[in-house]
């Protein structure tokens, strides 16, 4: 049911843009005001969320240790999975963020026995997730070419790498194909694995459909319903230079694309997509396991009612003396 609602929501959004631009000609609204607004919400919202997390202190150092600790010098410690200093913690985090190391762990060599063992989902989840995120990142970086003139070398390089296979005209970007396939996979597994469907919320399907919609509209306007790229660049450079003007005749597909992107930006800070920022703040991963070597300070550590030795001895002095246990006060 949640999946239907999410699909419906995205279709509704497309209709809004279709009507807004296609029939009512609200070019400025959809080409300037909404993108500006969405971007502002994104920046402020993102900062707000990060600050909100950051103002909560980290009272205890609680890394999840996934390997041998550093203790005796002759025992080999697992620096990566149980980092003992900031350097290795950064490496651990980097691998986590760039390669999804923890997700990959589920697929580590297992004894293959028994009749029919299907390894199924775990490995695919890692591969699908990684493909999705990397494709997304590269696509965003590729879009940088719309915002600067001349286009920087790294973007051109990225673009040529992405189009390496030289299929079709215009050249098919690998990432375009990858993101559609990966997003479809992530959706399909959500629906068809009963356990995952059981835990899935509207908020899990919606971003998938939204990003899927963005990818599809993007692909459509690049390969099928050609749009006026120079007019687009005029618009995007206008945003950057704060002299926005929404040229007509770019093509409706562009506005559909742009509107969904705007919605994604505005939705981002209020959604689970904030895992982008949150992963860096997870105390189970971003702290070194050097607890006993370096004291961690809890800013709200307060005094509590304890049972002192004096109270204890007062209560048990007689029996202690009888048992020949030394006491402080005779």
């Amino acid at each position: 049911m949640n999946a239907f609602y999410a699909l419906f929501a995205v279709i509704l959004l497309l209709l809004v843009a279709w009507v807004g631009v296609g029939t009512v000609d609200l070019y400025s609204l959809f080409g300037i005001i909404i993108p500006y607004l969405a971007f502002t919400i994104f920046i402020l919202g993102f900062l707000y969320r990060i600050i909100k997390w950051a103002i909560s202190p980290v009272p205890f150092r609680i890394p999840t240790t996934c390997g041998q600790q550093k203790s005796l010098p002759w025992l080999k410690s697992s620096k990566l999975d149980n980092p003992h200093n900031a350097f290795w913690t950064i490496i651990r985090m980097a691998l986590e963020v760039l390669t999804f190391r923890s997700l990959f762990r589920s697929t580590r060599a297992e004894l293959r026995e028994g009749p029919k063992i299907t390894y199924g989902d775990t490995k695919w989840l890692w591969a699908g997730g990684l493909a999705f995120h990397w494709a997304f990142l590269i696509i965003i970086l590729r879009h940088y070419r719309f915002f600067v003139e001349p286009v920087p070398a790294f973007v051109l390089y990225l673009q040529s790498m992405d189009g390496l296979f030289q299929i079709g005209l215009p050249v098919l970007y690998i990432t375009d194909a990858v993101i559609v396939v990966a997003a479809s996979y992530l959706f399909v597994r959500r629906v068809f694995i009963p356990q995952v469907r059981y835990i899935s919320l509207f908020a899990d399907y919606f971003p998938l459909f939204l990003i899927g919609g963005i990818a599809v509209t993007g692909i459509l306007m690049r390969y099928f319903t050609k749009i006026d790229v120079s007019a687009v660049k005029e618009l995007t450079l206008g945003w950057i230079n704060f002299k926005p003007a929404a040229p007509e005749g770019i093509g409706i597909m562009f506005y559909l694309h742009l509107f969904l992107v705007s919605v994604l930006f505005a939705y981002f800070p209020f959604s689970k997509l904030m895992h982008l920022g949150g992963i860096f703040l997870s105390p189970a991963r971003n702290l070194a396991n050097n607890n006993r070597a370096k004291r961690h300070v809890n800013p709200w550590n307060y005094d509590v009612k304890v049972h002192t030795y004096e109270e204890y001895e007062d209560e048990f002095r007689e029996v202690m003396k009888e048992a020949d246990l030394p006491v402080e006060k005779e």
Partner: peptide, 8 residues
């Protein structure tokens, strides 16, 4: 806040 319910 950050769980994406991937099910891992």
């Amino acid at each position: 806040d950050i769980c994406v319910r991937c099910g891992a």
